[in-house]
Design a protein around this nucleic acid. Structure first.
Lengths: 201, 201
DNA sequence: GACCGTAGCACTAACGGATAGCATTTTGGA
DNA sequence: TCCAAAATGCTATCCGTTAGTGCTACGGTC
């Protein structure tokens, strides 16, 4: 097997990061629309084609860490404590993710995203992919027996909760409120014995 | 007041339809990616700039009737029988919409959409707009008193149901299954007196 | 340590969607 | 009849993205 854990990979990672850093710097400095791909490439001192060999599109430069998001979601399902109910585990993770992206340090970036239709559109299609991954993870859980449709639906609902909470005035309360609804919907299709967690009387 | 209800509006509508027809014809004939904007403009016998004065983007040519969809959704809420519960009314409308777009006659169009990432992405951001409209309509209902967050969440869930059902093997059953979950979630935030409609024992 | 296949990168040129600027025609109303 | 606005057209251009090509540095193998 060829497991190339050497200089080549490191250099590649460095180049990628150099591009991402240059892009974010320029975007925040002059605005997303005012910066061209050619500007970013020049700032990072690489060719345009090199830039596109690291990032599939201009928008992808902004959502550089999107795979982290996806992994944290699926791991919240697969790596949770044995017998811990699914929905609370997901709620905890969504709370953490929302807290992370509503932090003050991330504010300028999200302001930029919200100001650009292209970026908003890209984010939404990203979320769809994440929902599909999450649905797969839920479906693969041996302790549960939901239908494929229920998996996909719950996964979408969870992503919706994230999306709505991120833009809400009180993100934490928004997540809690929507997850009360999700929990109720989940109980209908996949009833669990001990289900008096967050649902009311 | 100038209410231009005359020839000008009619001609404009004709031009718009002529463009949309030409576009759909070419797209289905040669494939979406294989047809350029210049081809469509030539086929419709208009200038490229004229095309873009009627449609905001190439993708918008395919989703020409997207406002119909939005209106049918909001009207399902605002025009429903007095005292008819919200969720069943929405379920009926979603069933009808799904039936409409899974009809045999529409199959080639949706096959084309599913085959093009650009079109799928565009559709998704369209659905987001529709969800916002729906949320507004729900929030404006005098017979209900949900929180703004609950409105937005339910609206998203309903759109999710449409989106998932459209791609499912058994669209009708998928809508029913997801709406059982939605109904349960709705009851949690906006309890109604007579709530034994679709929820199980 | 020399060799070779490949991954990373650069350069040029171009394609295709979208737009700005300005000219022209058509239309509705004064 | 004439004007202002709307609709359309033409030209040139911007910008994201990709194809084609070749060079260089690296990793694995002998």
């Amino acid at each position: 097997m060829t497991v190339p854990t050497g200089r080549r990979e490191r250099k590649k990672a460095v180049t990628r990061q150099k591009i991402a850093d240059a892009a974010l710097r320029l975007f925040l400095e002059r605005g997303y629309d005012a910066v061209g791909i050619r500007d970013v490439a020049a700032e990072a001192d690489v060719a345009v084609t090199t830039l596109f060999s690291h990032f599939a599109s201009k928008e992808a430069l902004v959502f550089e860490q999107d795979e982290d998001f996806e992994q944290r979601l699926t791991r919240a399902v697969t790596d949770r404590e044995p017998h811990e109910p699914l929905i609370p585990a997901l709620r905890r993770e969504i709370q953490a993710l929302v807290r992370h992206c509503t932090a003050d340090s991330a504010a300028p970036i999200w302001r930029m995203i919200d100001a650009s239709p292209a970026l908003r559109e890209y984010e939404e299609s990203m979320r769809l992919r994440h929902a599909e991954s999450l649905a797969t993870a839920i479906a693969a859980d041996p302790g549960l027996s939901p239908t494929p449709t229920a998996c996909r639906a719950i996964a979408r609902f969870v992503i919706d909760a994230y999306s709505l909470a991120r833009a809400a005035a009180d993100p934490k309360a928004t997540v809690d409120e929507i997850f009360r609804m999700i929990e109720a919907g989940w109980e209908v299709t996949c009833p669990s014995a001990n289900s008096t967690a967050t649902a009311g009387p």
